[in-house]
Design a protein around this nucleic acid. Structure first.
Lengths: 244, 244
DNA sequence: AGACGTTTAATTGTCTGACAAATGAAAATT
DNA sequence: AATTTTCATTTGTCAGACAATTAAACGTCT
């Protein structure tokens, strides 16, 4: 293969793209061993450091893994949902923080997505997921909980709700949406009363899921979305007032 | 700063993580210039190639951009929705193809997500988005269209439907779900009759969105989901039969 | 012959030093 | 003052070397 040396892009970026395309197209199947760095360098007519930079780019996307030793090398990595979660969360978090995405926009997206899988969760919920939801709701009611811990438990609750749908693709898609919201949620100071109301809604959601009542679950999620927006608006209004 | 040389992880991975954490935490704001490669090498007590491998990892995630020249260097990149789309699509596509995700699972996730934003699309649709949907529906009715072109137009139609919700976070989340489905959809051979039915449903969706009728849009999307699953089941059944 | 230690070859990880290319700033020239 | 030239800085690339790791091949002893 040849690489265009007159292209404006870095050689390592071009090589990474070539290998990435081969992986996506299926030309390089999972667990296939790539040629050694020395062979790749000769093949693309570049030096080994350049090849290594390309491989590191792919490793950063979890597309390959490397192993040292006699039978080592770079192998096409089976992308796990777990790996994809991490990347999704990093990307989503940065997208929200770097693009001045409003709380309202992010919150709307989050609850729209959650409501999408609520009917499926109601239909398929296992005892495990229900137990997790109950446990988190109970944790949230404990006194002395910091706002951060409350938010973390909130994320765990909603994560269980989403996982209950039993669709890994949905879980993966929503992981970013829910977890990326946490830094924004952490800005909210929860009063005892607002916590009480949220916990009450959480319990209602758990009840609806347990009863396999999709309509009730959807309605309660909608109420939670509305209430969360109200809380945030209060915080924003107070902050704006203080800024004056 | 110091890097643990006894850690099992590569030095470049550790350095990349340190810088990535600094970006995520906000310690390194957008457009901030990182120290030069030579300075980073001295700072982390490693060689320049090692620093470069770390920077390439970050560049692969669009976290930094680099520029040559006197005032060049590596800068913290403002992550654009556009960049995030690309990564999302790549990741989602590979997740589906590498993990033997069934068509049913992927399809369910896709339509669940789409139905989540249909009410918002109905409420906020602009003339632009409606025009795109109409144009794609019309393109789909043209004779002589290959299955691939039909699928591509299908993606464009649904993309417009999602974008009509006017929520960039939702658009970003759904881009992966919809586009990653395309390779799976391309496996389906569309008969003239099935195309006709799909186009009819598309037109009904466009009508509902235009009329701002969220309920009708949701119902039609549900019908489309069911029909798509039926088509796929037919293909799978035929394939299994041929395999015997 | 079989179990166990040793050597060896292959491969990635890291370092050093060097040069090319780009680029903006400073200096020189018109 | 405007333009050109020079220069310093920084990234991009290369060549070569050595260390670390690993599994297979080889020998040795029982």
């Amino acid at each position: 293969m040849k690489i265009d040396p007159s292209s404006p892009a870095d050689l390592s970026a071009q090589i990474a793209k070539a290998i990435r395309d081969a992986i996506i197209s299926g030309a390089l199947p999972v667990d296939e061993r790539l040629p050694s760095e020395a062979e790749l360098a000769e093949h693309f007519d570049v030096s080994r450091p350049t090849v290594r930079e390309a491989l590191k780019r792919l490793a950063a996307q979890s597309l390959i893994r490397t192993q040292r030793g006699a039978t080592g090398g770079a192998f096409v990595n089976r992308l796990k949902f777990e790996d994809a979660y991490g990347q999704q969360i990093t990307t989503s978090t940065l997208l929200l923080s770097m693009n001045a995405v409003s709380f309202a926009t992010a919150c709307e997206a989050r609850y729209a997505l959650e409501r999408a899988c609520a009917p499926l969760s109601a239909e398929r919920r296992s005892a495990d997921h229900l137990a997790t939801m109950r446990a988190e709701a109970h944790r949230q009611s404990q006194p002395g909980l910091t706002d951060e811990a409350f938010c973390a438990s909130d994320v765990a609750f909603h994560r269980a709700l989403v996982d209950a749908a039993g669709n890994p693709v949905l879980s993966y898609q929503l992981a970013g949406a829910v977890e990326a919201m946490q830094p924004l949620m952490n800005m909210i100071t929860f009063s005892a009363r607002s916590r009480e109301k949220i916990i009450g809604l959480h319990q209602m959601i758990a009840d609806a899921i347990e009863a396999q009542d999709a309509v009730a679950a959807d309605a309660t999620l909608a109420a939670l979305a509305t209430y969360t927006q109200e809380l945030a608006q209060g915080v924003i209004a107070a902050r704006d007032k203080a800024a004056q």
